[in-house]
Amino acid sequence: MPTARGPLSEAVGAHLLGTGPLPSPEAVAAAPVYGDDLQLALYQCYELHYRGFAGVRPDLEWDPGLLGVRAGLERRFLSALRADTPVHDSVADAVGALLVEPVHGEGVSHFLRDEGEWWQLREYAAQRSLYHLKEADPHAWVLPRLWGRAKAAMAAVEFDEYGGGRADRVHARLFADLMTDLDLDAAYGAHLDAASAECLATVNMMSLFGLHRSLRGALVGHFAAVEITSSPGSRRLAEAMRRTGAGPAAEHFYDEHVEADAVHEQIVRHEVIDGLLEQEPHLAADVVFGIDATGYLEERLGTRLLADWRAGRSSLRTPLPATHRVREEIPHTS
């Protein structure tokens, strides 16, 4: 069970361990929506649908009281996302904006490519491990909610994410191998206490969209945003791994994503989005919301990471164990 970050996550954790009552609706209403406490409480609720926590009864996944609290947390999160996300006018506009690459980008992957240091690459991987160690899982929930072209294409992309039937090629496995190269604990959930609220929010959004059939359009939009932007970003991160001599598995994870996601982008745009909207054109606004909400939360995470790193601060809530790898052989740049 992760360490509580306030009264909500404290109470949810206590309920899961059978040692205390659930938080009150007043407490749910009072917490800052993007803050550590609310985001961790929501993450705890969602984790029961993935791998759960040690010492927590698996059937609490469907505990009515807990589901009631989760619904309250979700209403707050979803309302905030709908209110705060600047949205494009159409799916074509939202997708089109993602298909333009900035010549002089200033995002996290640009930073890591150009000047990222070993400790910053490790922090980045620790934060992202919350998603990448369950890579593609939140999106698998949308499959029963799709039909025809969209379903077939989504299943094909997910099959590729899951290694095409080979356990050693499952993307979550490739990320665990990357973590080993970076001398990080690759155990599932190992970095939950370290992850920032901004990082929790990105993963909570996927779970929110994936678990609700009513948000299937947003899930598809979110997935499209990830796949469309992944290829160029992965190239920069592969270059960061090469420049710092992180190791072959670390390079391979991002190299694989350059190639795989150049394909996935095409399939998701032409088959999943178009297939879904052909059958359910009324979901277009949700697809746009999913694309733009992803951009909004990623922007918040990126801003936080860069602000911490440029100030020479750790972006993590708890320090990583010291690395035993000798880094002296790595040339320093800039």
């Binding site: 980008g105 200033e106 993307h171 932007t229 160029p232 970003g233 992965s234 991160l237 990623e298």
Partner: peptide, 9 residues
């Protein structure tokens, strides 16, 4: 400027 918005997947 920009990074593209999404997590590398």
């Amino acid at each position: 400027p920009g990074d593209g918005p999404a997590a590398e997947n």
